[in-house]
């Protein structure tokens, strides 16, 4: 088998990526999402009189609920195909990965299906979260012991 020739031919027919277009749509959708959550935050701050931290939680909660509902309705993957990283990187991508995996596991029951499969895609994000919290928490505690107080 002539792999050199094959690889040449294969390379010739590779679909060209529209990097600029993808980046543009990601920028646009990510920006709109940011604007939306900023609006939510302002709303929570000034209308509902939440504290600053609560208002941030409120905004990301709304995004998560929206992304999950869109996933449930089957619209999310059509939109995300266009938006790419604009929807994938923010918390919406995380919400979608949880919801889609849970929906997929529905047929296997609550424990073996929804419960264990929910984190099949998002699991690594959570694991990294745990480990980072542990390591940085340890460093923070040790520094505190030595009398160095880092107020983060």
């Amino acid at each position: 088998m002539d792999y050199v020739h094959f690889n040449e031919v294969k390379k010739m027919h590779q679909v060209k990526k529209h990097r600029f277009l993808s980046a543009f749509f990601a920028f646009l959708s990510g920006g709109i999402l940011g604007l939306l959550s900023e609006g939510m935050k302002e709303l929570a701050l000034h209308v509902f009189h939440f504290s600053f931290i609560d208002a941030s939680f409120f905004a990301s909660m709304i995004l998560v609920i929206l992304a999950s509902s869109f996933t449930f309705l089957g619209i999310y993957n059509n939109i995300s195909q266009k938006c790419g990283a604009g929807l994938f990187l923010p918390t919406t991508g995380f919400a979608n990965s949880l919801t889609s995996a849970a929906m997929e596991g529905r047929s296997e029951g609550i424990i073996g299906g929804i419960g264990s499969m929910m984190f099949s895609l998002a699991g690594s994000v959570i694991s990294v979260g745990f480990f980072m919290a542990f390591y940085f928490g340890t460093i923070y505690a040790l520094l505190n012991l030595w009398g160095i107080n880092l107020w983060l």
């Binding site: 993957n77 195909q81 994938f88 991508g93 919801t99 997929e104």
Partner: peptide, 17 residues
């Protein structure tokens, strides 16, 4: 999709190929 890739409603961007 479930066997070889991701859940059907997972919103990852698919390549043209």
């Amino acid at each position: 999709e479930r066997q070889f890739r991701y859940p059907t409603s997972y919103g990852i961007k698919k390549k043209e190929a």
